[in-house]
């Protein structure tokens, strides 16, 4: 068995080890590879940046725990940007697990900026049935969420005194790992002209490119790379930026395996031909 045949029959566990090294070593030793900011991400950043102090920003946590490594860095970066601009933040979730993640993120980042719950931000909690929730909030947020996730009546929360429906919300973002932002586009944007942007996992990115082209969404933050771009824009390189070194090296490992696999295939195919 020559080298090409050995490579064709390579134990998959060797590939796993090399991939783990490709990801793990750049995490231990920071390389600092450059991250170019794309137009899609800068559009979201610029839109938030141009909002006035006190404008309301809605952040919906529409994802489960399985995609935390992509979702947390992007939502943290957006929250930091919004809190630094003194925007009023309204959080909610259209996934049950998203409610726990969102609540934690709001309180953690709110604490960093000395923000007060109920005055500077509020987390409304989870509602099932995406369509009815998004449509209902267009008429009355209080009717859909009578209480916030602490059990306080929404009517008694100072922040919510001037926020009744989408007409009082300057911008909305859905942090999602599936096609939930399509519902926001269909019902929030198309029906109520809600200014909206999805912050999605990389897997979902191509789903939303047509909406970018048609101007239905302001911009898009996609995957760990999108989060790293946002971190760069707010001048605070953290988890995502560090992860991008590992991402780049891992991609080189994948490309290397594809090349070697194809070379091995063609080399052995030639030999096997009569």
């Amino acid at each position: 068995m020559n080298i090409w045949q050995r490579l064709r029959n390579l134990d998959r566990r060797i590939i796993f080890i090399l991939m783990a090294l490709g990801v793990g070593l750049p995490l231990l030793k920071n390389i600092g590879l450059p991250v170019r900011v794309t137009h899609d991400v800068s559009s979201v950043f610029n839109y938030i940046d141009k909002l006035n102090e006190g404008d309301a920003l809605l952040l919906s946590y529409d994802h489960d725990t399985g995609t935390l490594p992509e979702m947390v860095p992007m939502s943290t970066a957006i929250l930091r940007h919004a809190f630094s601009k003194n925007l009023r933040l309204i959080g909610m979730a259209l996934r049950a697990e998203g409610s726990a993640i969102g609540r934690q993120a709001f309180r953690r980042v709110g604490k960093e900026f000395n923000k007060e719950e109920g005055v500077d931000y509020v987390f409304l909690g989870y509602r099932p049935e995406i369509t009815a929730t998004i449509l209902g909030m267009g008429t009355s947020i209080e009717r859909v969420f009578p209480k916030d996730d602490r059990g306080v009546l929404v009517g008694d929360i100072p922040l919510m005194q001037t926020v009744h429906n989408y007409g009082d919300i300057a911008f909305a973002i859905s942090v999602s790992d599936d096609d939930t932002p399509v519902y926001w586009i269909n019902y929030g944007n198309a029906r109520y002209q809600l200014k909206f942007a999805p912050a999605v996992t990389a897997v979902m990115a191509t789903t939303f490119f047509p909406f970018l082209n048609s101007g239905q969404i302001v911009g898009m933050v996609a995957g760990l790379k999108g989060a790293a771009e946002y971190e760069r824009l707010i001048g605070r390189k953290e988890m995502a930026s560090r992860g991008m070194d590992a991402q780049s090296i891992a991609h080189l490992v994948v490309i290397g395996f594809i090349l070697v696999g194809n070379l091995a295939y063609f080399a052995t195919r030639k030999r096997n031909q009569p």
Binding site: M19, L27, V203, G223, R242, A250
Partner: peptide, 15 residues
Amino acid sequence: YTVMARISLLIGRLQ
């Protein structure tokens, strides 16, 4: 994009 997403999950766990 799918490859990128899956590697991101591994990065998160290794972090």
